[in-house]
Design a protein around this nucleic acid. Structure first.
Length: 108
DNA sequence: TCCGTGACAGTGT
DNA sequence: AACACTGCCACGG
């Protein structure tokens, strides 16, 4: 249904996230044209987590904090995945977030 | 149909 | 600089 369009857009953007990179919910929301619906992005990610095509673990809040790690199977699964990709994570927080950050709109 | 909830973000104090 | 409050919109009950 049309409502899936929103999710579809979120998934589409999230799927574009390069390996070893991370982005914020707000950035994705803005990319899909729903800058004011950053929360919805996270909500959509809930379903995205079940999708292998959508690396939801690469999506964090604007603070670089792994707020959604609690929704993953393991407590540190999200962190483990990020570290596995070369993203330095400490205390559920992405280090060098500024450098590891990837802007979906600036898909350079 | 109405109310509550939530993986955020921005602004105010 | 840190904490608190509000706005936002989709989904479930």
């Amino acid at each position: 249904m049309p409502s899936d369009n929103f999710y579809q857009k979120v998934y589409e953007v999230a799927r574009k996230i390069p390996y070893g990179r991370v982005t914020s919910y707000g950035a994705i929301a803005k990319a899909i044209g729903a800058a004011k619906s950053a929360r919805m992005v996270g909500y959509a990610m809930n379903g995205a987590a079940a999708m292998q095509d959508v690396p939801a673990h690469r999506v964090v809040n604007r603070n670089g904090l792994l707020t959604g790690k609690h929704h993953f199977s393991g407590t540190h699964l999200m962190q483990q995945l990020l570290e596995s990709e070369g993203v330095m994570v400490e205390d559920d927080k992405v280090q060098n977030f500024k450098t590891s950050f990837w802007d979906p709109m600036c898909d350079c």
